[in-house]
Design a protein around this nucleic acid. Sequence first.
DNA 1: TGAACAATTGAACAATTATTCAAGTGCTCA
DNA 2: TGAGCACTTGAATAATTGTTCAATTGTTCA
Lengths: 119, 119
Amino acid sequence: MPNMYCDHQKEHELAGQRAKENILSTAEVEKICAVFRVLADGTRMKIVQALLQGEMCVYHLAEVTDSTVSGVSHHLRILRDNNIVKAKRYGKNVEYSIADEHIHKIVRMGIEHLTCERE
Amino acid sequence: MPNMYCDHQKEHELAGQRAKENILSTAEVEKICAVFRVLADGTRMKIVQALLQGEMCVYHLAEVTDSTVSGVSHHLRILRDNNIVKAKRYGKNVEYSIADEHIHKIVRMGIEHLTCERE
DNA sequence: TGAACAATTGAACAATTATTCAAGTGCTCA
DNA sequence: TGAGCACTTGAATAATTGTTCAATTGTTCA
């Protein structure tokens, strides 16, 4: 009797092809991953969470995240390049804020996933 | 006249402290990041997208993602350890499926963020 | 102008992570 | 039982990524 659940020899060409057609392209997948990759760092996540409470300058962000101004600045560049935060200069300071409405949602999803996890 | 936007000498202790109190702990932030870190890889994202269409065995997932069975298996372990997919054995095969309702939502958020980006 | 502060950048190093390959386990069926 | 398939694992290598420090840019104000 053949394997009734997953007969590779006969079905994978069809099943594989079907799934391949419905899946996003490698380029599109890469772009989506990029957003998650940005949010996958602890310091950057803290920066985002701090900015969700209102705009803040680099010095304050370094305070809040327990890191250096230089380090935060590097992370802010990555966040800017990925349309997650935006910068506005006021005199000597640069005030950062959240660029995009659904960064709120994405981060909230992350928190929800956390709270409903059972170990 | 003092800097009216961000007078560090006088305000950062207060502003910094306030933000520090409202932000999640480092441990909590790390856990949230972990979810995003898992979704930040192209192969894993493809696996998740394939599984959003229905359960699938390792062989098929390797087909769909254009990678090796071994490579996919390593990624599936990471996905399992982070409660994103679950495994069920049927005879020789192991069928994988999405473990958690809001993986749908999280991935959809990622796609939305992508589509409303302007370059 | 120049001194002081805010932020950015680049380069070097350290740490993490993905991929590969070979060897292993678990299951089925002749 | 043992041959063959499905999958997993571990170790080694290659590639990416974060952090640090020193130097640089941009701004203000005396």
